[in-house]
Design a protein around this nucleic acid. Sequence first.
DNA 1: GGCCGTTAA
DNA 2: TAGTTTAACGGCC
Length: 412
Amino acid sequence: SLLLRLGGLASNKAGLEQVDKSKVNRVIYEASKNSAYFKNEEKRDTELTEKVNKLKQHYAELLQQDLSYDRAYVNTMVEALEQKRDLSRYIVLIDMDAFYASVEERDNPSVKGKPMAVGSTQMLTTANYEARKYGVRSAMPGFIALRLCPKLTIIPPCFDKYTAVSKQTQGMFIYHFKLYTTMSLDEAFLDITDYCHENNKSPEDVVQELRAEILKVTKLTASAGIAPNRMLAKVCADINKPNGQYRLPNDRQAIIEFLKDLPIRKISGIGRVTERILNAVDVKTCNDIYEKLTYLYKLCYPCTFAFLIRVALGIGNENNHVEWTRKSLSVSRTFPSIRRPADLRSKLQELAGMLADDLAKKNFEGKVITVTFKLVTFKSFTRAKTLQKYVHSKKDIYNFALPILEAELPLH
DNA sequence: GGCCGTTAA
DNA sequence: TAGTTTAACGGCC
């Protein structure tokens, strides 16, 4: 299971269906096994396994107990949520297909049809569909991708171009719809309910037209998911990727049916750790969450349980309409190992300057300063300090960060 | 308030 | 040879 996790493909990613997974995993393992990165991952995995085993033990004890009182309480919570289920909205997630890679293909047609990825030998951010056939994927270091596919072309990212396209699509969205800005350049949530009613059009047709317009304006394809809430729309957007769309009707029974065999990992917010934790209590699908709600109520923190019950019922987050506001701003860089205090100080200077520039551009300031350390062993840790006043200048950032750095010296 | 871990793109 | 960057949030002490 370790090998699977470390080398394991995110098989839920589009375009990876026909990959020879065991061969790909072997190549990744051979390229990884002696690295410091791998050793660190092994350590993390051991810690997680311990946590999972403890949970299993706790679960086994619960199986022996009479939980009828808890079951009744959970049922009242389910009913209360059911009362508030909102099936009145048409929420859409628009997701540009292999975004960065598609932009580069568009602007350089000679790489079209050939395996290509955007990034560097250190890290890839996006792979085109041709490259995905070889097991190449985003968040994979380029040097490993080259072992999987020696003919792979790696193109350095050009964020100005991606930002420009993102501005174009966002402009199209807000012209007609309520737009909930998302953090990435290639994704946006829209509420098309009012538009559908006003123009007497079906959600499917509206999204079809929107995707056609995106293609016309940007020469790029997008996929979309349509559902009564964000959580489900996000899952739906993956179903007919690339260049497709899927609608989950605003119907309770259809939602229950949709969730029946849906793997928990498809839900945004459930990653590899949560997946393994839930697997430990025999939960693999969203319906399994529903079946095991009483146990999860006993095993999870209230906040986690509140999230899971919504997943089980297919009811999204309540504050869907809350505007995004920035809460922090940061810069980070990985560089070849340095340990001389003078070198570390000048690196800090450099980063402080970059951060000050970004703060100026965004007209932002902060009063909590956090320094993150990453060692050659890949162990990382943070040290933070709340200041008396808001700061934004390079000088202030450096002066307040320096003692935080020096308190950790010597690094080893 | 400070730190760690998880998640996502 | 080589494993990113930015942002948010929950939980613990």
